[in-house]
Design a protein around this nucleic acid. Structure first.
Lengths: 135, 135
DNA sequence: ACTTGACCTTGCCCTAAGGGCAAGCTTTTA
DNA sequence: TAAAAGCTTGCCCTTAGGGCAAGGTCAAGT
């Protein structure tokens, strides 16, 4: 019997995650045994693997659901996928730029800790942080 | 009277954020009027500005609280600050590397959308995503 | 004095993607 | 047959607040 734990093993997901995807409408609710156990068919496995791959690309469950909904309606989701990839590429570039700027700021602050020059006067808590920009 | 809204204006924070910092123990609870209004003294402003600067460096409220707690106990928080900065520098570097790898993967997938070569056979949902690595 | 608008109070629900735990069944294994 | 492992639901937790609601309060204009 393909229980949720078994499916988890074969997809690398956790049972909790699989139940969440069901609750969020990413996968169809499976049949249940008389005792209430979820019983999956093998056709669910590729869908779950797809979800994993999409997540690895940084897509959110909400975005993945949009893709899967399209597909369930018999439509080609590839156009949507392309849009999402473009959007994410731009966002990732932005986040990299932001992090590089942050890295600069952090490094500047860190350097200030060693060259303990302007440490004198008006620090409320710690000059290392307070000498940061004008923020 | 230095109400929370006034303090918000002068620090660039929101009233909600200021109340949160109080609830989380980053700032001391201010006096209240008979009606229950928070009445701040000017000494709170530099602390709130410090919190803003620390946040701009990517420190979490929990980390900032540790710094402020040290200071309230009359201790020099700079050693802790240095540790936190080093830690964050390493984390930022790691996140940049992760994002650059993700960018690669995204770009590879995006390229696959145009060069529509291997689009033929076994896509469960969309070959653009499913041809990703072996994940 | 009265009203109105701006401001304050608390409290609750919301975000993303699950992790962890608890109480109570069920299935499997020894 | 009893214990171990697995399943069920449900609730609380994470970040740093945003948004909204209901109700009390302050300041300005009439």
């Amino acid at each position: 019997m393909l229980t949720v734990g078994r499916v988890a093993e074969q997809t690398g997901l956790s049972p909790k995650a699989i139940r969440l995807y069901e609750a969020d409408g990413l996968i169809d609710p499976p049949e249940r045994t008389a005792a209430g156990y979820r019983t999956y068919t093998a056709t669910t496995l590729p869908v779950l693997r797809f979800i994993r791959q999409a997540q690895a690309l940084g897509l959110s469950l909400k975005e993945i659901k949009r893709i899967l909904d399209l597909q369930r309606h018999g439509q080609q989701p590839c156009d949507l996928v392309i849009d999402l990839l473009d959007e994410h590429l731009a966002q990732v570039d932005q986040r990299i730029a932001d992090l590089q700027a942050l890295r600069e700021t952090l490094q500047t602050a860190r350097d200030r800790a060693d060259h303990a020059a302007d440490r004198g006067q008006s620090a409320v808590v710690c000059h290392i942080i307070e000498a940061t920009g004008t923020g």
